[in-house]
């Protein structure tokens, strides 16, 4: 019994890191992934801040899942998340002011990161506290790894440095495009393609609807629409 539950919690923890990596496989939380990864350290900071919010909000939402009426659950979740975002804003402002100013507007925007709301809706509101906390931690680590990888590649190629240390040859021949917005899109596209190649599966034709909190409302519109039509066109 204890063995199987330990296995179960290991699974909750590890699934977010590789198998269901929120960014590279789930394709959620694109905005911070692209925006703050012009330096490895910023990616790391953003990842850790998001992980903190993710764990805390998962725990609280899991505890309150019986109290929150389902009709107002999305606004309630958002308020809980926004509360923790305000908390981490204060902490960073006090202890790591350089990261605070580098992340800028994307720190308050953690509130609307679809990974957090998606996990709240898809996991924490249905599962026990410990499992939710582990799920939050795993997803957070997966997010942090993705951001750190993006940040490292962009910083090494674009600025010729890593975590602020100059790399001898590259720093004289840096490709500035990589730390500009265009480079963000390019590097993310390449990483997702690489992950697809390694996982040896067909790339997703559409963005991750499964974890998206809007999956229901989305269905009627056609925003995530015409999957068959486009796939047919692409192949």
């Amino acid at each position: 019994m204890s063995n199987s539950s330990a296995k179960g919690s290991m699974f909750e923890l590890t699934k977010g890191i590789i198998k269901e990596n929120p960014v590279l496989v789930g394709l959620l939380g694109m905005c911070p992934t692209l925006a703050v990864t012009n330096q490895a350290i910023n990616g790391l900071g953003m990842g850790v801040a998001t992980t903190f919010v993710l764990i805390c909000s998962n725990i609280v939402i899991s505890l309150l899942k019986k109290v929150i009426p389902s009709t107002v659950r999305l606004p309630s979740f958002i308020v809980i998340i926004a509360g923790f975002v305000t908390l981490i804003e204060f902490l960073l402002k006090c202890y790591l002011p350089t990261i605070y100013s580098a992340l800028g507007i994307f720190l308050p925007l953690i509130t609307v990161n679809c990974i957090i709301l998606g996990r709240a809706e898809a996991f924490a509101s249905k599962n026990k506290v410990v499992a939710s906390a582990l799920d939050g931690l795993g997803m957070g680590i997966g997010f942090t790894i993705a951001l750190f990888a993006m940040g490292s590649i962009r910083e090494i190629l674009g600025a010729g440095s890593f975590m602020g240390m100059k790399i001898p040859v590259l720093c004289d021949n840096s490709m500035v495009m990589f730390i500009m917005p265009a480079g963000g899109f390019f590097v993310l596209g390449c990483i997702i393609a690489l992950v697809n190649k390694l996982a040896n599966k067909k790339p997703p034709a559409e963005l991750g609807c499964s974890g998206c909190p809007h999956a229901d409302s989305c269905k009627n519109i056609g925003a995530c629409e015409n999957k068959e039509a486009t796939q047919g066109g692409a192949q």
Binding site: A182, F185, G189, I192, A193, K202, L207
Partner: peptide, 16 residues
Amino acid sequence: TFRGVPATLIAASIVS
């Protein structure tokens, strides 16, 4: 391997 999302992102990079 680039079909779907990766190609879309790289196109977005060029538009950007």
